[in-house]
Write a protein that binds this DNA or RNA. Structure first.
Length: 275
DNA sequence: GCCCAGGCCTTTC
DNA sequence: GAAAGGCATGGG
């Protein structure tokens, strides 16, 4: 099936390349996107962005791309703060949407992301899917699903090491084991702050990874992950002087409140593009 | 050879 | 509770 959306507020490149997901491929004019155990194609055609997926997956991808939400209001609110970088970002990247992603996929993916660069993160995750995921086909082309926790827990640290995860191999193995035993119910129905603290009890999940999981996996849009790029933005574009990441996090979340997560993505993506 | 990447864990003070 | 090392790996 196919559906479309105003491309001013849904740009495939901005939405996929901004660092919130690592499972997509650019193929000429369109992107192949993988999420949990599903796949779709996304293409921008003039003023419409078109999503094409299997018959039963329309609702899944409508939710995945967060299409029920009005982003024009979010963009305007972001611009109203009058920080030059943020205004440039919200103007040039109005098509950047926050994805609603699978919770376990977010936990494992962002454990891989720590002290790592995006191309390499993509490679590691791709090899994990290839090794442990289920082979499926989409429009005649094969792809691999993101592995279930059962598969992740059964793999052992050596597998993750061979996939290129480096020293994060034991974090993945231990956290998969923990989630296999206790599930995710203890992370449900919590406010953002409590969820973050609870996520940080997992091995390999610190403040920044927890914020990413809360934001992209649990829809906690008042989260503001602080990484090396945000530190740089804080110093160079907001005149900040604090060194402690938790203080920087507090500065931004108090400033941007319920739209912290959107603002964080605008800033992060714009800074990387040197906007 | 260096430094950096969507940091976290452990040890030490 | 704060500060400092160590950590796998690949790109620039």
């Amino acid at each position: 099936m196919k559906f479309d959306y105003d491309s001013k507020f849904f740009d495939p490149e901005q939405t996929l390349e901004c660092g919130q997901t690592f499972r997509f491929e650019k193929c000429g004019s369109f992107y192949k996107v993988y999420a949990s155990d599903k796949a779709c194609k996304v293409e921008k055609r003039e003023n419409k962005t078109v999503v094409e997926c299997e018959e039963g997956d329309g609702e899944f991808f409508y939710d995945y791309f967060d299409l029920a939400r009005d982003y024009s209001d979010i963009c305007e609110r972001a611009k109203s703060f009058s920080f030059p970088l943020l205004t440039r970002a919200a103007t040039a990247c109005s098509g950047l949407r926050l994805l609603n992603q699978n919770r376990e996929e977010m936990i494992y993916s962002f454990i891989v992301s720590q002290n790592n660069n995006i191309p390499r993160i993509k490679g590691v995750i791709s090899r994990i899917c290839r090794g442990l995921g289920e082979k499926k086909s989409f429009f005649g082309e094969e792809y691999f699903t993101f592995p279930t926790t059962v598969k992740m827990a059964g793999a052992g640290a050596e597998f993750f090491k061979k996939a290129g995860a480096g020293y994060r191999d034991t974090y993945l193995a231990e956290t998969a084991d923990e989630i296999l035993k206790r599930g995710l119910t203890r992370f449900e129905n919590l406010d953002g702050k409590t969820l973050k603290k609870e996520l940080m009890t997992l091995k390999g999940v610190g403040a920044k990874v927890a914020d990413c999981v809360a934001l992209f996996g649990f829809g906690k849009r008042d989260s503001f992950p602080v990484d090396t790029w945000i530190e740089k933005i804080y110093r160079e574009d907001f005149g900040g002087t604090e060194k402690d990441r938790e203080k920087i996090n507090l500065y931004f979340t108090r400033l941007f409140g319920d739209i912290s997560g959107y603002v964080q993505q605008y800033l992060f993506y714009a800074k990387r593009l040197n906007l």
